[in-house]
Write a protein that binds this DNA or RNA. Structure first.
Lengths: 336, 336
DNA sequence: CAAGATTGTGCAAACGTTTGCATTCTTTTT
DNA sequence: AAAAAGAATGCAAACGTTTGCACAATCTTG
């Protein structure tokens, strides 16, 4: 009733040694089929669950993947998590999830803590960590997969959206729709994805023969509030210089922009076109439905797990870059 | 470089026994201040992290809270998770999170698996589990906190939104705004919160002297799609019998309804008033902004952890019921 | 100054597994 | 029929901690 049954209890009942039980439950061919089945029956009977602590202690690692993320409430993160959970569950792995609130120091602390739990590997989402941190990574002997962060090192792998391409794709779409004055609402400062999307935006402009204008970069941090503020930035631009379109770092800030536009009586897409990035689930219900770049977030999560498992199995692992797709909805209007 | 340092390594360097190291790091007054500091210095030097596996093995439990949730992508869940993470991190606990996809069998499987990890306690969100399951609960000797599920048993505690009250509050608001024909868009069938919100809806109607009409219950499951369908249900009602307001089980389906209404040219709130439940972050940016009942989700998460910790510390724990607040925005219109 | 109390430290067992090696028993081979 | 090989199982060590108990050294106390 109270104490969980151990391998010894099963051994006693079956009249064999603990080692035999261990081997039987591991389906080792070294133990006869008959005893194997008998032991399995007893184990089921007792509702035996192996002590992961003991197993982890002797094996030196546990069937747990450590996951580190800057936040848990962002829908983009939630979607990646969903992919992580699906793939890791199928592989018999659990996940220990830690949030850093964007604090690099805490990120290091979390890595330590997770290693203390003998995690088999680490998956780190949108790392904000600095160089000091790279030294630590070199010390770690479990494989690490970075999602949308781009790090290098021994046993360090990457799964990422090709953000530069995505930024280019979004901007190019706006150009093709006839927009000539396109602003970019930036994301969090140190983020790699932010830098890459901005670079894609710039390249698209230059491909089209336009020069990059710093004036058209609106500071932001990917939050709803940043989107709201961006609309006011737009309203404050002299009429003649107002961009006809804004490409937002992510959907969340694009949605904030949309909402504020509605409240301020600015019609989207008639007065202003808005482009997002991510294609999080809620974009489908925004008004107007948001044109955006699909980032295959769930897939990103599944692939991160797959890469980690391959690394654990000593299979070759290569960095993966996923290109997003344009999702055309109704927040961008063609102009002449 | 490769192998993590153990307590023995520290002992060797410090020239003391492993037991002393263990006690020193635990700040035991049984070891002199001098050695304590010396040992701590060496531990820092080596970047020592204790093996949770070993600790968990000998102590019989680990500083991990097992969390079970039907899904990870729902914003309501994400918000509860945020509260969980915050509170548990502050208390030095990690979280092992498992998702069930609403499958009761899998819920049991997950409980087993988490117990295998020696979790100190369990927090179970929106459990869909049945009676067969209650037998299992009685067997478990770690404390369990159910969030929005209502179970009873030894060492079983509840933290929940008072959904009946919330349903009553929402419906009463609609009645006060002059609505006389109010439909209810239901949530997932077996859910307790669904049942309770529906009961509150009914009580409010009866308080106002109206009779409950089964005809006005729209089947649903809390998804965006269910919201969309609900609008078509509404469109298909004979003009004279069309409800003037719909109270939705949750914000997600309310948002779906809003989106479909926009696409079908139905003006909210002019032609139809819509009420949500949860007050998830995105409701603030819906168009029109959604009137809803705030469910204090993050707080729910924090309180769940607090209850669990109290139970672990053998402090008295009582079930907690949180009443939501009405958030009046613009999706409900007064009619005469 | 002897006896007792106090302080600081070490020994060794225990937690529940896995696994290399040894052992026993049965079968095959020569 | 003896020797070798194979099959099934057991023994015991190891993983890295915590902790009750024993021990030694120092300090009080009468």
């Amino acid at each position: 009733m109270s104490q969980r049954p151990s391998i010894k209890d099963i051994a006693r009942i079956a009249g064999v040694s603990p080692s035999t039980v261990s081997r039987a439950l591991a389906e080792s061919p070294r133990v006869s089929l008959a005893t194997r089945e008998r032991i399995r029956a007893i184990a089921d009977e007792l509702a035996y669950t192996p002590s992961q602590a003991a197993r982890s202690l002797v094996m030196g690692s546990s069937p747990i993947i450590g996951v580190i993320s800057p936040t848990l409430s962002d829908p983009y993160i939630a979607s990646v998590m969903k992919g992580l959970e699906e793939a890791s569950h199928n592989a018999g792995y659990q996940r220990l999830v830690a949030s850093t609130r964007g604090d690099a120091a805490r990120e290091i602390e979390m890595v330590r803590m997770l290693l203390g739990h003998n995690v088999g590997g680490l998956i780190i989402l949108s790392s904000r960590a600095q160089d000091a941190y790279r030294a630590l990574l070199a010390q770690i002997d479990v494989p690490i997969v970075f999602v949308n962060s781009l790090h290098t090192g021994p046993r360090v792998y990457n799964v990422a959206t090709d953000n530069e391409y995505g930024g280019w794709l979004a901007t190019t779409h706006l150009l093709q729709q006839g927009h000539r004055c396109i602003a970019y609402l930036a994301g969090p400062n140190q983020g790699r994805s932010q830098t890459a999307r901005a670079a894609g935006y710039r390249r698209a402009l230059e491909d089209a023969g336009q020069s990059f204008r710093q004036r058209l970069i609106i500071p932001g941090d990917g939050s709803i509030r940043a989107g709201r503020k961006a609309l006011h930035w737009w309203l404050n631009q002299p009429q003649a210089e107002r961009p006809t379109a804004i490409f937002c770092y992510n959907d969340l800030s694009a949605l904030g922009l949309l909402s504020e536009a509605y409240q301020q009586g600015v019609s989207v897409p008639d007065a202003l076109s808005v482009m997002g990035f991510d294609n999080v689930p809620v974009t489908e219900i925004s008004i107007p439905p948001l044109t955006t770049v699909e980032q295959h977030t769930e897939k990103l999560g599944r692939l991160a797990v797959a890469s980690l498992l391959n690394a654990l199995a000593d299979k070759p692992v290569t960095d993966i870059f996923l290109r997003g797709d344009l999702i055309v909805r109704a927040s961008v209007k063609a102009i002449s």
